[in-house]
Write a protein that binds this DNA or RNA. Structure first.
Lengths: 133, 133
DNA sequence: ATATCATATGAACATCTCTTCAGATGTTGC
DNA sequence: GCAACATCTGAAGAGATGTTCATATGATAT
């Protein structure tokens, strides 16, 4: 059942309306969740993610970022443009060089939490495979 | 400059090779970063994210999840299929009902960290806008 | 001034992703 | 068995995303 009994019962038809309502109430406003999904979206591209991870150690110029992330300088520039647009990174310009750094504490924290877990679990288990279809 | 001086100098050409090498060394293996990007990818869809947030409170059936996330039952089922494939959620079947629950501690932690931040920052600042192009 | 360099940008293209629609599968009640 | 139900699935279309290639912009050096 949904929330109360356990077998066959139209969802939202029985005594579960209570809990469903509770769940709905505990959900953050849609705009907030959407913003959050956006942040996760920035973190979801392998190239961009490598760039951000590299920046955890400190400021780097575009060419170095490209080398560190293993992508072309053009792709790097495009990626940085997106991160810049969302204020995830900040630029410092010096002559013809541009130095990027992480500028978003939220993202930094998510990265650190995620990376700690990676080290802990990488060799323990974790399958990217399939559930069981 | 890249790592050492500060103005004009080919990246990876001067005394920066030291730090670049250090940064590259501190980067987790590409496969790990890719896996992580994958997880963030799962979190990056608004619908899927709402589903996972709803599941933070406990087990829910498909229809209730659909209602909580404000999406069609078909879209919900497709989303759950993907989450299932990555073992982010687990199913418990009872008759014709299917009850889903969060099954990935990593994801749960990321969600909690992210949600705490949302409450803290939502009304303080945070612009989805543009950097300054 | 001119060539070179570091970075930024635009257009085009290929790829992936999510949604919907229609229908399949397995379950329960009559 | 048959109908209603909950969930699942596949195909198809729309939209978003990331990459490359070519070129633009601004800075430095000769």
């Amino acid at each position: 059942m949904n929330i109360s009994s356990d077998v066959a019962r139209a969802p939202g038809t029985s005594g579960n309306s209570g809990r469903l309502a509770g769940v709905r109430a505990s959900l953050p406003p849609d705009t907030d969740v959407a913003d959050l999904a956006d942040v996760f979206g920035l973190l979801s591209d392998p190239g961009r993610l490598r760039l951000m991870v590299a920046l955890l150690s400190g400021e780097l110029c575009v060419a170095d970022l490209a080398a560190a992330a293993g992508m072309s300088e053009s792709a790097t520039s495009h990626a940085l443009r997106i991160l810049r647009a969302h204020r995830v990174v900040a630029v410092r310009r010096s002559g013809r060089m541009a130095f990027y750094s992480l500028a978003d504490g939220h993202v930094r924290m998510l990265l650190e939490v995620a990376l700690v877990h990676i080290e802990h679990s990488a060799m323990i288990h974790d399958h990217p495979g399939d559930g069981h279809d």
